[in-house]
Amino acid sequence: MQGIKRFINQLRAKSPWLLHFDCGSCNGCDIEILACLTPVYDVERFGIIHVGNPFHADLLLTSGTVNHRNKKVLANLYSQMPSPKIVVAIGACGLSGGIFREAYNVVGGIDKVIPVDVYVPGCPPKPEAIIDGVVLGLGKLQAPQERNGERKEA
């Protein structure tokens, strides 16, 4: 039984399906995420495919500052993802609000709304960095029980 569990967890890391939500980024991070899917970086090598739908996703890649309007969307999407799930925040804005921290409609980084597992710094991060971040996230996906499951959900 334990063996099967470990096996399944290994497979989880081999097939992370990715949902990308741009919550108010400048596009820089988004196009780098998209670039990861395209021939030059081709993350499908790792079994990653882009799904447009939280129900199918294991990984939530979010970029951009959270603002008052999209924070609800972000929380909604997170709640629609079946566990185990990993959130990767991409780019300075996603990590902390970046250069827009002080703007009036900015709540802050992604982790103000949903628990974040991996932070990928950069403005925007290079596709290599995003791949690194996803790989880091996969480690967490492999050992889902170690996550301190229910953190604060807005």
Partner: peptide, 24 residues
Amino acid sequence: ALKTPYCRFSLRSADQREGPAAAL
């Protein structure tokens, strides 16, 4: 969210505390 955010004359006092705290 902040109402009429560009009216800085009426918002000046709120602006004194800058940074994320103000936004929050």
